[in-house]
Design a protein around this nucleic acid. Structure first.
Lengths: 128, 128
DNA sequence: ACATTAGTTAGACACTTGGCTAACTATGCA
DNA sequence: TGCATAGTTAGCCAAGTGTCTAACTAATGT
């Protein structure tokens, strides 16, 4: 039962649902991209990712300085749940807005995005 | 998205999951039976029920002094979710313990149970 | 080696949540 | 009409959560 409550706790936060929704669309995203999407500090995003990972819903992969996240789909158990969430989110207007923003974010490489987050001009992410 | 987070918040508490699991097995249960199962005050149980109802997962029906609750199944949306939860809970040892206790609780009428909760001797619910 | 930097961990703080008791509401019965 | 009682609401408190800043870790590149 604890495993189940952990999954639901992980999904019960708006920003974490936004992360899940982003990963459902983009398959793999790095920390800085998710940070940019949510407009929170890296520390906050990292904590959210930690919660999603320990619930078993998300996997991470380190590549150099970057960490990439993706939905854990191999687990037959949670796959039904993930699919249900996907259906629910597909009609959500907030998710649609995030999708647009995500397309902008992923239009440049993470490296450029990180430069932008340090305040340097680089790739064309419009200010919101 | 708020509707979805409300559903997951509702499900992210251990006692509320126990309530859901009880209602999956017994179709309809009254407040005093759920109070007895969780071993919390009536006020606490009532708050949990309120959260489950406003998430849309549970319906209530008043019958005289008693209020009966049941899983809201007509909603095609959440039906898949409910079924998934049912599957997950079916292998859970804590749920199995609750099931035994519930059989004892439902073996007497709510009216008798309420007398018992006031400290009067009535139907044979063993002390735990 | 050393400086730079992407991400995590620690600590602080405001807000939320789960539990309780006590007061309240509403239904049934004498 | 008035008492008893099942359930809800209000108010309180301890514990948990989401966010931030600051310190830390690990990887890159000069």
């Amino acid at each position: 039962m604890d495993k189940l409550t952990a999954i639901f706790k992980a999904l019960s936060d708006r920003n974490r649902l936004r992360i899940v929704s982003a990963l459902l669309k983009h398959d793999e995203l790095c920390a800085c991209q998710l940070t940019e999407l949510l407009q929170v500090t890296g520390a906050t995003a990292s904590r959210h990712m930690g919660i999603l990972i320990s619930s078993g819903l998300v996997d991470s992969r380190k590549d150099g300085r970057w960490v990439y996240y993706r939905i854990r789909r191999k687990q037959a158990d949670s796959d039904v749940l993930i699919k249900w969430i996907e259906t629910q989110l597909s009609r959500d207007p907030d998710v649609a807005l995030d999708a647009i923003k995500l397309d902008e974010i992923t239009s440049c490489e993470p490296e450029e995005l990180c430069r932008k987050q340090r305040g340097e001009k680089c790739c064309p992410i419009p200010a919101h």
